[in-house]
C-alpha cells in the first residue's frame, strides 16, 4: 500500500502506486452492478447450501432442508411417463397379436414401442434394424429358423431358444466330428452334398457319397431335400441364407462342431405387453409371414 494517495492527472482516479516502465495502474473500483451481482451470487450460494444437498460427509451427505433428491426426481418422472403410457400398455396387454395388427393406433404404438425395446434389449446381438450378424439371425429377411408368423416370433421371444426354460425352443445338432460320429472324409462328402443343394458342388461323385451320409444322419431334422424343419429350428440348406457362413469351410466346421445358438427367454425380464410390441416390431421388419 502506498503511503501517499496519488491521483492520476487525466482521469482524476487514484492509482495503485504500482509502476511498470512508466505506466501506472489506476485503482478503478469494480462497477457497482458487477459488485452487487457478485454479492447476490454469494448470497444465492449460501441459501442454496442450506436448501439443497451440499456438504459431503464420509458415508452420507447433508441433504438440504428441502429434501430434494435427483434420484427420486428421475424415479418420479419415470413413473409419470409410465403412468402416461399405462392406458396404451394395458390395451396392448389385453389385445391379441392379431387385434394389435388390426388397430391402426395400437399398431403404431406397438411398432414404436417395439423399436425402443428392441434397441434396448435385442440390438446387441441382432443389431439395430434386425440386421443380424454371423450366428445371430437377420430378422429382416424372409428365412425363419423357428417360424416367421406373429405368434411364432412371439413364442421365440417369450421363451427363447435352447436355454434353461423348459418351454424354450429346443433342439440339438450332434457334433459329428468332435464326437467321432462321422470321420473327416464323410464330413467332407456331406459338406459337398450340402453345397450341391444350392447348386454349388464341385465334385458330383463326392456329393453323391455325401448324399448317402446325409440320408442316414441329417434328414431327420433337415428334411429329405434339405429344406429344413421349423419345428426343430433346422435351417433350410437349399437357399441363399447361411447363419454361420455358406462357404465350404464354414459348412465343414458346422458339421464338425455343430452350432446350437441360444437366445434367452424374455418372459420375466420384459412384461407381456413389451414382448407383444417386440413381436409386432420384428414381424414388420420386412420378413414377417
Amino acid at each position: 500500500m502506498p503511503t501517499k494517495i496519488e491521483k492520476d492527472e487525466i482521469s482524476g482516479q487514484q492509482t495503485t502506486g504500482h509502476e511498470w516502465d512508466g505506466i501506472k495502474e489506476l485503482d478503478t473500483p469494480m462497477p457497482k452492478w458487477w459488485l452487487y451481482t457478485f454479492y447476490a451470487t454469494i448470497l444465492f450460494s449460501a441459501v442454496y447450501f442450506v436448501l439443497f444437498p451440499s456438504v459431503p460427509f464420509v458415508n452420507s451427505y447433508f441433504g438440504g432442508i428441502l429434501g430434494y433428491n435427483q434420484r427420486e426426481d428421475v424415479a418420479r418422472r419415470m413413473e409419470e411417463a409410465a403412468a402416461e403410457q399405462a392406458p396404451f400398455m394395458q390395451r396392448v396387454a389385453a389385445a391379441t397379436l392379431e387385434e394389435i395388427r388390426g388397430n391402426p393406433e395400437l399398431l403404431t404404438y406397438a411398432q414404436i414401442g417395439g423399436r425402443i425395446a428392441f434397441n434396448n434389449n435385442c440390438a446387441p446381438c441382432h443389431q439395430v434394424g434386425g440386421a443380424g450378424a454371423r450366428g445371430y439371425p437377420n430378422l429382416a429377411d424372409d428365412d425363419w429358423l423357428w417360424g416367421g408368423r406373429l405368434e411364432d416370433i412371439h413364442k421365440t421371444i417369450q421363451y427363447g431358444i435352447r436355454n434353461s426354460d423348459e418351454r424354450s425352443r429346443q433342439s440339438a445338432m450332434p457334433r459329428y466330428g468332435a464326437d467321432r460320429i462321422l470321420d473327416q472324409k464323410q464330413i467332407g462328402e456331406v459338406a459337398e452334398y450340402v453345397l450341391s443343394l444350392s447348386g454349388r458342388a464341385e465334385d458330383a461323385e463326392r456329393a453323391a457319397r455325401g448324399a448317402q451320409v446325409f440320408a442316414e444322419q441329417c434328414v431327420a431334422c433337415h428334411g429329405e431335400r434339405g429344406e429344413g424343419n421349423r419345428e426343430l429350428g433346422a435351417p433350410d440348406l437349399t437357399n441363399a441364407i447361411w447363419l454361420y457362413g455358406g462357404d465350404r469351410r464354414s459348412i465343414v466346421e458346422t458339421i464338425y462342431n455343430a452350432r446350437n445358438g441360444a437366445m434367452p427367454a424374455w418372459e420375466g425380464r420384459l412384461d407381456a405387453a413389451t414382448i407383444k410390441m417386440l413381436s409386432v416390431y420384428v414381424h414388420a421388419l420386412g420378413g414377417g409371414e
Binding site: 434386425g130 437377420n138 429382416a140 429377411d141 428365412d143 441363399a240 441364407i241
Partner: peptide
C-alpha cells in the same frame, strides 16, 4: 442397417 437384405432365393 441393414444396408440391404439377401433373401432366401438370393
Amino acid at each position: 442397417l441393414p444396408l440391404f437384405v439377401t433373401l432366401s432365393d438370393g
